[in-house]
Amino acid sequence: MAGAKKKSKTTKSGVKQGGKAAVSRETLETYYREMLMIRRFEEKAGQMYGMGLIGGFCHLYIGQEAVVTGLQHALEPGDSVITGYRCHAHMLAAGADPRAVMAELTGRADGVSKGKGGSMHMFTPEGGFYGGHGIVGAQAPLGAGFGFANKYRANDRVSVTYFGDGAANQGQVFEAFNMAALWKLPVIFVIENNHYAMGTSVTRSTAIQELCQRGEAFGIPGQQVDGMDVLAVQAASEKAVAQCRADEGPVLLEMMTYRYRGHSMSDPAKYRTREEVSKVRQERDPIEHVRDMLVAAGHADDDSLREVDKAVKAEVNDAAEFAQNNQAPDAAELFTDIMAEA
């Protein structure tokens, strides 16, 4: 803010930008279904937590669905994704089986991490997703490491490295920025700016509020994107991916988004007003936004959308059922997987 000189490289795209005309019906329908899937999945996880079926920390992605959904559509097989503990949606977006994700949340044998990782530690290398990390900011250099591997192999692939507005203050994030820029690594750093790190708003934690400018000192171009608009996310992501694939070095995207729920299940969220939350829900909800576009274009009506909702719910319920009935890991599993087999 005050005193921050903006370089031409950093751009802010206003709200609703990127939602350009020619979007196919299919694309919109896909986005709608995928985002709804994330939301219903997370709602179910929240319920199951309330029932004591899920324990420990459980961070829901509700409100932020457009970010991971839009970004994933800009990627290709072989690209990699990494994030922090708020990772259920990233798993689903990477194509993980909802049953295995939910069974990980309940800590059962057929969970994606055999019940050993839980909500914060899930991986699906098959889908290019490498976790699921609990230490705030630690994934930033890891993601740069995936970029390093791509560059090393000259394979044209990109590394998407997500972290939060709070994580953006960790020293190792800046260290990763510097090396990524120095070595022109194909990394898209994605700050999911949901305005809060637990109970601390960006205004209380950060000297310069415009997180998209964070890379400028390293020559990393940044863009602020409406993270509640999946089309804006997709457009910005495609551009960033193209830059990375063209070997132009790292890119920083600041996704302006919002989490509707508490930081984790145990957060009473007294640091913000109910009105603030309901205003975002009413005016900027990413799923409603796509729904409106579908209806306005005549691609969908209440009945057809209800069908989608029903199908999504059925899939989520199936996953929940599976996760509740799946058996606990065998006691012998305590001592497996400590070391990789040679």
Partner: peptide
């Protein structure tokens, strides 16, 4: 504690 990173699953955590 067991010589393993602490697992999430309730039964394994108790064992560890």
């Amino acid at each position: 504690g067991s010589d393993v990173p602490l697992p999430y699953a309730a039964n394994l955590e108790t064992l560890a």
